[in-house]
């Protein structure tokens, strides 16, 4: 087994709301092996964003973490002081957000921002500038020297996202978190950015935690896939296993109802009836039971655990256990 860059154990996050305690994610375990791309897929409200923000320690004030640990390069991020955390984020751990326009500062030129983020390095400004140019070349921006004087609004969406990837990778992080980095882009650009991420990952050897709701993007890029539903990991395994041999009823349905997976023209598309359960009043048992058409008595009472279903493929479902 290779080393893990990130090791999340038994992580839960609660939000205090007016209606009570909202259990956004519960008992999540996640490993990211060195040099691999792990994809987290799930629909809105499944806890993807909470998971990311708890890794980078940017949770809202009304959130608390009752239990769990996030081990990153042998230290627990949750126990670090904010000062130490600040030293890690941006250097060892960096993130690319969904919307590049709101990531970049609109009133500073690209060059100024790229030089600013190297404030930790005690080298001359000239060298910092050269480094920025090299990085922009790496992410495929034409004429990088002149681009440094441009402001974010002067670049197109795809170019902006390339700049934010360049900034995230500048310090050579060991883990890059990518939060839906292609959602705001057009399809032809989406493919370009995915290819860029894959090439850079191979070149720089970092790991990527890639979060998306787009099944096609995950299938394209990732080595390992984690499926989340309503704050729990319901299934995880190698990309090939998850997409060719899905075992959890939710994953099966999710793949079925993706219009992209139906190549024959169909007037009536499959859907998943029902809604995700209220995370404030959780009733116990399996989280997917109210929308699952194969649920049995046991699903109401006992919460299923993640069990090995196949090699490198874990599923939390009573139907698989028995």
């Amino acid at each position: 087994m290779s080393e893990n860059v990130l090791r999340i154990r038994d992580l839960s996050v609660n939000y205090q709301t007016d209606r009570g305690v909202l259990k956004a994610i519960r008992h999540v375990n996640l490993d990211i092996p060195k040099g691999s791309i792990v994809g987290v897929v799930g629909e809105s409200g499944c806890g993807k964003s909470t998971l990311i923000t708890s890794i980078i320690r940017q949770l809202d004030d009304n959130a608390d973490i009752p239990n769990g640990s996030i081990e990153f390069e042998k230290q627990d991020l949750l126990k670090l002081s904010l000062d130490k955390m600040r030293n890690i984020s941006g250097t060892k751990l960096s993130i690319v957000f969904q919307d590049p326009m709101s990531t970049l500062n609109p009133v500073l030129s690209i060059g100024r921002q790229m030089i600013d983020i190297q404030y930790r390095d005690k080298i001359s400004k000239k060298r910092k500038k050269q480094r920025s140019i090299d990085m922009l070349t790496k992410v495929g921006i034409p004429d990088p020297r002149n681009q440094l004087n441009q402001y974010p609004y002067e670049l197109s969406g795809g170019m902006q996202q390339r700049v934010s990837i360049a900034m995230a990778l500048q310090a050579g992080p060991s883990l890059l978190i990518a939060d839906e980095p292609t959602t705001a882009l057009d399809t032809t650009l989406e493919v370009q950015i995915l290819k860029l991420l894959k090439d850079l990952q191979e070149e720089m050897g970092c790991s990527i935690l890639f979060v998306s709701h787009h099944l096609g993007v995950i299938a394209e890029l990732c080595d390992h896939v984690v499926v989340m539903y309503a704050g729990e990991i319901v299934e995880h395994g190698s990309t090939y296993e998850i997409f060719n041999n899905p075992a959890h009823p939710y994953t099966v349905k999710l793949l079925e109802c993706d219009p992209a997976s139906i190549s024959k023209k169909q007037r009536l598309l499959p859907t998943i009836p029902g809604e995700i359960p209220d995370l404030i009043n959780l009733s116990g048992g399996c989280i997917f039971k109210n929308r699952c058409d194969q649920s049995i008595d046991r699903c109401d009472k006992h919460t299923p655990l993640l069990n090995e279903f196949n090699k490198n493929h874990f599923v939390s479902c009573h139907l698989i256990e028995s």
């Binding site: 399809t187 032809t188 493919v191 993007v217 299938a219 394209e220 992209a260």
Partner: peptide, 24 residues
Amino acid sequence: ALLSANLTPYPEASLKNRIELKGE
């Protein structure tokens, strides 16, 4: 190009036969 840039949830159908457009 649009059709081939359309990502599907099949890991095998990877970048092989894709027509990637240059530029923007």
